[in-house]
Design a protein around this nucleic acid. Structure first.
Length: 224
DNA sequence: GACCAGGCACATC
DNA sequence: GATGTGCATGGT
């Protein structure tokens, strides 16, 4: 293993010791994972849980039900997840795409190589790189490392990547330095999210800094 | 009241 | 190709 690979594994060990295995994705079925992946776009997971609970309570968390549901009803059910109008469209795009291809047989849709499935998903309007990778890794159970805002922020702050590294560069960094181990890729991303949620905030905590009383946006007040 | 949360598409330059 | 903007609820 490369020195970089060893560092990544040491980081994983440290996170794992602190948080324990995260047992992701938090969803009972492949469909629930796909739905959650779309609903969690730029949104706190607790809000997504409310939306998914609404779908379950309404008996709408199935491919046939979602294939039939109208925009207004769907938007109303997923309202707590935020961006409910755009997410209703994105969810519909995904469901319609799958339904036309395999009907109610989601496992059949997911049953192809990671690369092929990723490209297929990226062709759906509303499914971007993170959403596609989440579905490939967590719903299909195939090797595709998931990069998110936490991942980029944490790795940047630890000097393991540059500000100009884009999604694909970060993804490649992990995929080429970690062993091809589904459980490792699964939990590595989940551990990074745990670190991000608990410690690695956009505005770093600056307790004790001599400049603490000067706000980070000090220039805004000087521009008048 | 401000900030933040497991993005993405689209308009504009 | 890079940058800016709209989308929206709910917790801290």
């Amino acid at each position: 293993m490369s020195r970089t690979g060893k560092t990544l594994m040491d980081m994983y060990a440290a996170m794992r010791e602190r948080f324990a295995h995260q047992r992701w994705w938090p969803g009972e079925t492949q469909l629930e994972i796909c739905v959650g992946a779309i609903l969690t776009q730029n949104t706190n997971w607790t809000n997504v849980e409310k939306a998914i609970a609404n779908l379950k309570a309404a008996g709408r968390l199935s491919l046939p039900a979602l294939a039939k549901i109208g925009h207004d009803e769907l938007a109303g059910l997923i309202r707590p997840a935020g961006y409910f109008n755009v997410k209703a469209k994105r969810l519909k795009n995904f469901i319609t795409h799958v339904w036309r291809q395999v009907g109610d047989d989601l496992p059949a849709f997911l049953d192809r190589s990671a690369g092929e499935l990723r490209e297929e998903l990226l062709g759906i309007n509303g499914v971007g790189r993170e959403t596609a990778d989440s579905i490939v890794l967590y719903a299909a159970g195939k090797l595709s490392f998931v990069v998110d805002a936490y991942t980029a922020r944490i790795m940047l702050r630890h000097g393991l990547l540059c500000p100009e590294d884009d999604y694909e560069a970060i993804k490649e960094f992990f995929e080429s330095n970690l062993a091809d181990d589904l459980d490792l890729w699964n939990d590595y991303h989940a551990q990074l999210v745990a670190v991000g949620k608990n410690y690695c905030k956009p505005r770093p905590a600056c307790d004790g800094c001599p400049l603490e009383k000067f706000p980070h946006d000090i220039r805004a007040g000087l521009m008048d």
